[in-house]
Design a protein around this nucleic acid. Structure first.
Lengths: 209, 209
DNA sequence: TGTAATATCCCCTGTTTTGGGGATTTTCTT
DNA sequence: AAGAAAATCCCCAAAACAGGGGATATTACA
């Protein structure tokens, strides 16, 4: 079987060298390039035709997440494995939504890194259970948001918009020329349809559409 | 293209008639109403659904500036073009700060008035260079939101972030490992610093950068 | 070292919101 | 013309929130 072609983006020189050395001295991998930033990532990926991108999430000039957003649309087949120092769920999740396939902590033992690279090459998605859970939850809820919001009537949308602008029920009653009770009725229906129990929750869902 | 709907407020009968006549006899405009004062302006605007308000700055009972302050919050999409006898920078500027979009001197030639109405309808802002300069200067000292948010502590920002994600005080207490009372104290400080009085308002300011 | 800022927790009071009813009118569709 | 959907208004009780106190511990800084 052909070697797995790896392209590395990591701004820390020591870690970059260490990764290169480790991969080159292990059978089954070939490091086609290793760079300190992503400024020229598009031509580089095009040139090296890597199977897997091993990419730091924190880099100068262009963050790993931004780089992922650049790469994925143009090279959808390339697998991207993110490297992070901290177990920052939010940013890792952001990276995955942008197109990364998996992630590892930098302190991960070398053997596990090699394993993850093979996993990702074979179609797996190395990640921690907490991230995995977020991904699942997102899959379940994300498409629903749109549907849920689509079920709102024009008036309900108008009032949800007002809520998201920070207006209270009274203020909405004023601007919409209806009574506070009517505003409350609309808000109740909005909560039902969006399956939430407070204005802030409704706004959060609305802003995720 | 549909006619531009104009609503006129001018206490001088001759000028009011003249404006009506001029606009009605020109293609592209329709005067939906013309009144001598602003005492019933809210229901009138609601009824006529005008694109542009042509409004004298000096009127009995309710001045044009006061009327603008009434109208803009309720009908933010309506454009207001002020009319003045004198080139009174201060009051024109006051009107613009209140929500007017442009202004004209009453001695302005009819052709220029028509032009200004079309400009304002298409998103422009007819005004003299001296007023324009004042507006620009005011913009430079404007972005208060950023400053306000910058005054929040790390903890407060964290909690504001939670609020914007739709979390209740209880849930925030849980995720931050502090008591509900502490969350409430932080929220109180956030409200003070952002000068708001509810979670939705705070979130609205926060989401505006 | 002492003061300011921050983070933490508690109490009390009044207001607002939420969730549960029900009811009427208007509008649209069939 | 009948029925469904939407928009309007009202009442009640419990929960949450907002605003006002006050208090303590830790950190930062001058």
């Amino acid at each position: 079987m052909a070697d797995i072609r790896i392209l590395i983006y990591e701004d820390n020189p020591s870690l970059r060298e260490a990764l290169c050395f480790m991969l080159e001295s292990t059978g089954g991998f070939v490091v086609t390039g290793a760079y300190e930033d992503c400024t020229a990532i598009l031509p580089q990926v095009k040139e090296h035709q890597p199977d897997v991108l091993l990419m730091d999430i924190d880099m100068p000039h262009l963050t790993g997440i931004e780089a992922v957003k650049l790469i994925k649309p143009k090279f959808p087949r390339v697998n991207i494995l993110m490297l992070t120092v901290f177990d920052d769920d939010e940013r890792v999740f952001e990276a995955i939504k942008s197109g990364a396939t998996g992630y590892l902590l930098k302190k991960t033992p070398p053997a596990r890194i090699l394993e993850a690279l093979r996993e990702i090459y074979e179609g797996g998605a190395p990640m921690s259970p907490s991230i995995a859970r977020k991904v699942i939850l997102n899959l379940h809820t994300a498409p629903v948001h749109v549907e849920e919001i689509a079920r709102l009537t024009a008036r309900e949308l108008e009032i949800l918009q007002c809520l998201s602008e920070g207006k209270s029920s009274k203020m909405i009653a004023d601007t919409c020329f209806i009574s506070v009770d009517t505003v409350r009725t609309h808000i109740k229906r909005i909560y039902e349809k969006l399956q939430v129990h407070s204005a802030t929750e409704a706004i959060a869902k609305y802003n995720k559409r």
